[in-house]
Computed example of a mutant assay.
Amino acid sequence: MDIRALDIHDGPTPPASGLLEIARRGLRAKPKRLPSWLFYDAQGSALFERICEQPEYYLTRCETALMQAHAAGIADTLGVGVRLVEYGSGSAVKTRLLLENMAAPVSYVPVEISPEPLQQSVQRLNGQFPHLPVQPLCADFTRSLRLPIPPRAPRRTVLYFPGSTIGNFDAREATALLRKMRTEMGDNGGILIGVDLKKETSLIEAAYNDAAGVTAEFTLNMLVRLNRELGCDFDLAAFRHRAHYNALAGRIETSLVSQCAQKVRVGRSQVAFDEGEAIRVEISTKYSLEEFAALAAKAGLEVLRVWLDPERMFSVQYLVRAGSVAR
């Protein structure tokens, strides 16, 4: 496939004026916050791939081990003639394990907000699966999607959402996203989703504070992006990465913390920071199996199957419409 033919969605990244308003609104809020999608410019996407290689980052290791052990069983559950739509496809490493085991898939639709990783992934997939129609979509998966017309009618559409990205949304947002997915998958469809499980706090915190400092560089790259795209003057040395586990909320909370009292130019105005003041940039919720089933139920979904990695630290779950399974 000619990568120049990529279907580029109108606006995975807002224009500078829209980005400026998002930054201003978030930095004026109390407490300050910025959306986590700001991580994923070309440099941020590359840094995230490096995070996944760090020894402390158990999520990728466990999910990959799970897929290696259970990909055939997962593919059998999905059935024949599936259109597979992946939210936040990235490098699609785990997806290849699934595609290798699927029976006569109709098409694969990777949905990715960053065009460079999407193009690279499509090139690799075309080489590995030359007979599989790949229909890439550069878009923000949290918005309503206009999926490409498949080359033939699928028996079902399955939305694949790996990597525990659902944990980056609070309960209200996660419920809304699952409801949107329920609509997009159709009456006979399903959702195959990665869900990180609750475990010892030290293991969780280490995954978001790797010794090599890659996660800290990834977090600070958000400020690099704002400096480049908006002409801000964030001093990277004046901020530090912080990620800690909030046991009460059951989630990692990642922030950029001001090391001193300072002012930063954002557009034509300045934003003041106190020493120790934080910008919340991401959450990463961890669930018990019962908690996630309850969340799915709020979105009109039920858990049909659950697969666990050998260490039982991570799960992949298959969701269908509530009441669609004969008892």
Rank of each mutant, 00 (worst) to 15 (best):
S324K: 05
D140V: 11
Y245A: 01
I149W: 04
W307P: 15
Q68Y: 00
G267D: 14
K94H: 04
Q119M: 03
Q54P: 04
D233T: 03
E112R: 02
D210V: 06
M313Y: 02
R152Q: 15
I51F: 04
N227Q: 04
V85Y: 07
N168H: 07
A176K: 12
S324Q: 08
L98W: 09
N168Y: 04
L27P: 01
G163I: 01
C232D: 07
L38I: 13
L192M: 07
K199M: 13
R143F: 08
Y287T: 05
A42G: 01
A92S: 15
G190H: 11
P115A: 01
N246H: 09
R156Y: 02
I113S: 12
Y87N: 03
D10E: 06
S164W: 12
I149A: 05
N227K: 00
T60S: 14
A293C: 11
V106E: 03
A206M: 00
L197K: 14
D196M: 11
L226F: 11
A69I: 11
V281C: 13
M185C: 07
L27I: 08
D140P: 11
D41S: 01
F218I: 05
M185A: 10
P105D: 09
P154L: 11
V303T: 13
F239T: 02
V271Y: 02
L132T: 09
R124F: 10
R83Y: 01
V111M: 10
G163Q: 02
G73K: 07
A247F: 02
S89G: 09
S91I: 00
T60A: 14
G44Y: 05
D235Y: 03
V106L: 06
P162S: 01
L78V: 14
A69M: 07
D196V: 08
V214M: 05
E217Q: 15
Q120M: 10
L159I: 15
V264I: 09
C52G: 12
E63W: 10
I22W: 00
G127K: 02
D170G: 03
A65M: 08
E100H: 08
Y208H: 05
L27F: 03
C138I: 14
R152N: 00
G73D: 15
P310I: 13
C62M: 10
G323L: 08
L6W: 12
M67V: 12
K94G: 09
V306R: 15
Q43Y: 02
S284K: 03
C62F: 05
V271I: 15
F129E: 04
W307K: 09
F161D: 01
L304F: 13
D76T: 11
L27T: 10
A103W: 12
A297W: 15
A75S: 03
P35S: 10
G11P: 07
L295I: 09
R28N: 15
V281G: 11
L230H: 06
G127N: 12
V266L: 13
N188I: 02
V111P: 05
V158P: 00
E49D: 10
